[in-house]
Structure formats: C-alpha cells, structure tokens
Nucleic acid binder design. Structure first.
Lengths: 250, 250
DNA sequence: CGCTGCCTTGATCTTCTTCAAAACGTGTGG
DNA sequence: CCACACGTTTTGAAGAAGATCAAGGCAGCG
C-alpha cells in the first residue's frame, strides 16, 4: 500500500457541506434499520450520532483497537481492510452511503475486526457503543434489520470464499467488477460506469490476486472490448460478456 | 464428492434416541439466542419446532430451494456446502449442537444460500419460516443474540477470505485444523483429539485446496510430529507448533 | 519540465493442481 | 475365516496458473 495524493482544500470544503445537520437527520431517518421506529424515536436517536469527516486514504478506525463506536457512512465510500503480517492488504468490503460498521452489541469481541479507510471524502455518523447498546435494548426490532444486512454480508462473504476456492483469477476479477457495477455503477453512454478511486492494487486486494495480475486481466478485458478504462474509472461496455466471464447472470 | 458407506440400521436406531422429546425441550431451552426469553415462552416456542433425524451424508436442505425452515442442530454435526458448476464442493462451515442455519427473517433472499449435509447421525429441530418470523416479531430481543452469532460467523468468513488471499496451502490447512481443535477437540493423551468423520477431501474443501494437496500437508504434519492421524480422527500433538504454522496464538 | 506514483508488460520461477497409479484399510460375501 | 472389492489415502511426475522480479511508459502535479 503506497501513499496516494490528497487534496486537503477540496476535502476540507466537502467535509463541511457533506455533514450538514440537515443531511445528518435525513441520513439517519433514511437508514433501513431504523425504518421500524417511530419518527420521534429516530429523531432522538439521530441526536446520539456524532459526525466526522475524513479525507481520502484517511483511517477511520483500526483493527484491534477498542470497538468504541458504531459507524454509519453518511456519504462517501470506505473500504474495510485486513492487514497481514507481511504488510499485504485484503479488502473485505466497500461501503457507501447507508452502510455501517464497527461495534455490534452482544458480541464477545471487544475490538474492531478490521480497519476502515476512506476512499473518497467521507462523512460518517458515529454513536458510542454504550448508547447504541441502550438504543438496541430499548428498540430490539432494529436488530432484526441489522440481522438482515449482516446475513446478506455473510452470504456475500461465502460467495467470495467459494470463488477463491475454485475460480481462476480472471473470473474473480470479472466477478469483482460485476459487483462494483451492480452496487456503484451508473448507466452512461460508455456503459455501466464505475467512477471510484480504485487502483489496480485495490482491485487486486478485492479479488485475491496481485497488482500485476489484476492489471493484466483488466488489460485483456479492455482489449476484448468488455470494459473501458480511464483515470480512476472503469465502465462495463459488455455486461453480458462480463457476466459470463464471472459465471453469473447479468 | 463420492459416495460414502452408510449404515442404515445403526443410524435408524440413533435417530430415535437422539430426538427424544425430553432432549428436544432441553436443547431449545439451552439455545443461546433464547436465553433472554421467559421460561414459558421458550416452552411454547419449543412446541413449534419439529424434529427430524438424518443419517450420515444425508442432505438436510438444498441450495436454491425455498427457505421454508429455520433449523437448529440438536445433536450431531452438519456441513454447510456450496456446489460449483464443475461439481466441486466448498465447505463453508461445520455446525454442531446448538448451531443454526436456514431461513432468517427480513432477508430479501427467498431460498437457501447453501446446502446442508449431515456428517454424523444428526437430529435437527426445524421451525417453519412463518412461525419463526412471528416468534421473532413477538420477541425481537432474540434477534440481538442471533445478530451476535451471525456477526461472529461473518468475522470468521472474513478471516478465511484473508487466508485464501495471502496464505499458502500449508498455513491454511494448519489453520483449519486449529479451528477444528478449538471447536470440536477433546483433550486426551494423544493430544487434542478431533474425532470427526472428515475425509481428506472434506479437509481440502474447508481449506481451499485439493484432496491430494491436503493429504500431502497432513502427511508432512504427521511426519513432523505435529499431529497424529487415524481412521476418521486427527489429534493435535503439538498445538504450539501447529499454531505457529497457522500463524495464530495457541 | 521533471518528478512521482501508477499502470503495463515481459521473463522467470515457485506453488499447487492435475493426472496417474499404487498402497492401504474396511466391510462384504463366499 | 479368508479373500476380494471398493473407497480412501498416499505418492510420484508433469503441467499450468499465477506470483515475483524487473523495467519501461504514462499521466498528473509541483
């Protein structure tokens, strides 16, 4: 993992406007796992969250440090990462607006299981673990919705384990691109546009391979007209073909 | 995956005694995710579960079939598996007594995400999805405990993804053995005894490798005195050394 | 401009899979 | 009780996929 350029000025501005109080309330109200709560309860809950902005590449929390907060991504994009002893990284997941991470109640675990790093200028809403625990004890129905999300993530993790076990690199990279397209893609003339500051290294760390191999696969896909690439963006030109390479339905 | 011998007579007997009504109630009462409920509620809940026995290798439920039930393993051992197009398998997890799988409420998913197969004579308790949903809506605090378990599994899945990304085969197999020891091991003179009907193929499917490679690693570990093996059992003779091979603390 | 990351490409080398076959052990049927 | 048959484990040898090492090219930024 190498350093990446930053633009403090820009992100400074962005931070300010992204975390306006109005937006904060709107975000909290829109959280899927608060949907079962009454409006006034949600408003009260919103007041328990504290907002904090992060610049690209800034660390939001560290693996093995005390799990003091439950975080919600208000805006921006973050990556959940594991660092290995040899200094290599593995990206476990990307989370955009509405995604959450950090402390979960009733877990035996006392520390964060992974580190979280901002990919773009990001605003998070954090609630301290004690308050969150109280909130959940008072409104346990929230746990049902959290459970649904965590179950889906577990399933996604299982799918990835399956791929790492049996699928060759090309298929895994194609699969990663498919997921990125589904989750973050925007329909454009160039195809399904994935406009994220993801390096080849990031792509590799999401697909279980090395930077070089990821680059080779991307180059091949570009040559074959399946994708188009540019500075910090990838667009899926031929979704059907990519889907078949990834062994999925488009 | 090849066929494995069965003993219908023996397992027929076992089924009957393993699923006695008394045991059923005891199991349900002991379920960690029902610990927050009143005794009478648990008793009522227990009546909603139906028991069913399975012989070794028998399928309990199938991936992609409608998620009609939530299952609890009352006794025995099951494996959660994914089958790939090429006919290869991946073992996602093993579950012993008290483990659960199947339908979870509020999930968008309508079908099982994996197949489940009995490894030993197994008794399961199943509740139909509708009843389970009602039960959880009536007692949402249960969801909190389910959430804790699912979170732990997600974390374990992440750990496995990490290993598949960066760790060589030997380390992954060692890690699998460590986990088996921690979860199912019994302290004996021979060491930490893992007395499970796991073939080399199973071990491979848990570690992300092939039968042959798994066999080679096991042979090496045996030669080095780290483990001892026999018919359907493995014992960890040198836990510290295995831990260091797995890059973990013993 | 020239620097610094990032991306790309090539060549080599290691690891692990694949293919093949023998050894082993267990249960079965004669 | 023995011998055979079948599934499992083991071992060997060849091959392929991908990692690693190395170096050149490109783009944005100071």
């Amino acid at each position: 993992m190498t350093k990446r350029r930053r633009s403090p000025v820009e992100t400074g501005n962005v931070k300010a406007e992204m975390c306006s109080p109005a937006l904060r309330l709107r975000i909290v109200r829109g959280l899927p796992f608060f949907s079962s709560l009454d409006a006034e309860v949600v408003t009260a809950a919103a007041s328990l969250f504290r907002e904090k902005g992060f610049s690209p590449d800034e660390m939001i929390c560290f693996s093995h440090s005390p799990a003091a907060h439950f975080y919600v991504v208000a805006s921006g994009l973050v990556k959940l990462i594991h660092q290995t002893e040899q200094g290599r990284f593995v990206i476990l997941d990307l989370l955009g607006g509405g995604g959450f991470f950090g402390y979960l109640p009733r877990s035996r675990r006392e520390t964060y299981a992974y580190s979280v790093q901002a990919l773009t200028p990001t605003c998070t809403l954090a609630i301290d673990s004690r308050s969150f625990r109280r909130l959940l004890d008072a409104h346990p129905s929230v746990a049902l919705d959290l459970l649904a999300v965590v179950s889906e993530r577990l399933e996604a993790a299982h799918e990835r384990i399956r791929e790492l076990n049996v699928a060759p690199v090309e298929q895994r990279v194609a699969s990663t691109l498919m997921q990125l397209g589904e989750r973050f893609g925007e329909r454009r003339e160039v195809g399904l546009l994935i406009q994220l500051p993801l390096s080849r290294e990031d792509l590799a760390e999401m697909s279980g391979t090395t930077t070089e191999t990821a680059s080779r696969v991307v180059s091949d896909l570009r040559r074959d007209g399946v994708i188009r690439t540019g500075r910090r963006w990838i667009s899926i030109a031929d979704l059907a073909r990519l889907a078949s390479l990834a062994n999925r339905q488009p």
